[in-house]
């Protein structure tokens, strides 16, 4: 026995239909605009550690301390193609430490010993202090404290080390806790093009 649809049933169908249409429309509308991945991004022109010209100021380590993750999602990244490959790298060595008999500062700058280096290219045994080095940052150790970033500044440093968000770790919180405390408002949402998307 088939029940006659009541007025209430019909009204329900109409509302549901309209609702689904609205949601579908909203989906299309939103997706059309969402051609890229939105993500937290550090503006290198704002961050005090990265920003060129901000020398002789205290390192800001809030990226290391204020992420919700136990090990911050922010890492120091050395752009190899912009690195001077200096032997006495002011981001690798604590330049204020005593210089040893080998002519090198005796202490390293990174508090977590996350930077390793390797001599590259031609090595002149008579001129050890002018060899070139490749500086690699260990992603498992680095917590984005920014000490090396501040170290690699003009005039000697070329600014090749920057802080960047590691998106394989970042939770992409709506309310990034670092962005909340960043004194330079350097952590902002930015469209990041997905390769192949």
């Amino acid at each position: 026995m088939k029940k006659q649809p009541t007025r209430r049933d019909v009204l329900g169908h109409v509302v549901r239909g309209t609702g689904l249409l609205v949601l579908g429309g909203a989906a299309v509308h939103l997706v059309r605009r969402a051609n890229a991945e939105g993500a937290w991004w550090i503006d290198p022109t704002k961050c005090v550690n990265i920003r060129l010209g901000a020398t002789g100021v205290e390192v800001c380590d809030l990226c290391a301390t204020d992420c919700v993750l136990p090990l911050s999602a922010i890492r120091a990244v050395n752009e190899f193609s912009e690195c001077g490959r200096c032997c006495i790298c002011p981001a690798y060595y604590d330049v204020r430490s005593e210089v040893g008999p080998d002519g090198l500062p005796s202490r390293k700058l990174c508090p977590r010993d996350a930077i390793t280096r390797e001599a590259i290219g031609e090595v002149d045994p008579e001129d050890p202090l002018n060899n070139f080095y490749e500086y690699t940052i260990d992603e498992d150790k680095c917590n984005g404290c920014g000490a090396c970033v501040m170290g690699c500044k003009e005039p000697a440093g070329l600014g090749s080390i920057r802080l960047e968000v590691r998106y394989d770790v970042c939770l992409d919180c709506n309310r990034c806790t670092i962005a909340q405390v960043c004194p330079d408002d350097a952590i902002v949402q930015k469209a990041i093009d997905l390769p192949g998307a």
């Binding site: 200096c86 032997c87 006495i88 002519g103 008579e126 001129d127 050890p128 202090l129 002018n130």
Partner: peptide
């Protein structure tokens, strides 16, 4: 026995 300074 000089050491060539860093940056020559």
């Amino acid at each position: 026995g000089s050491t060539i300074p860093a940056w020559y």
